[in-house]
Amino acid sequence: MTKTNMEKKMGQGVGFERIRRITGYLVGTMDKWNDAKRAEESDRVKHGLGKNA
């Protein structure tokens, strides 16, 4: 790869990987999740470690 090419392409169009757990298994990207599971993932709220939510 030439230098100019390299400069242009370093990271361009490359997304972040986001690993999540789906029914016990981990899944590398959410591209392969079905619609319902995607909706569920986006609804998930964090659980605090205090006494209250």
């Binding site: 569920e40 609804d43 709220v45 659980h47 605090g48 470690l49 205090g50 006494k51 209250n52 939510a53």
Partner: peptide
């Protein structure tokens, strides 16, 4: 999953 609740609870 959408219900706010503490982890311990």
């Amino acid at each position: 999953v959408w219900f706010p609740i503490a982890a311990y609870e």
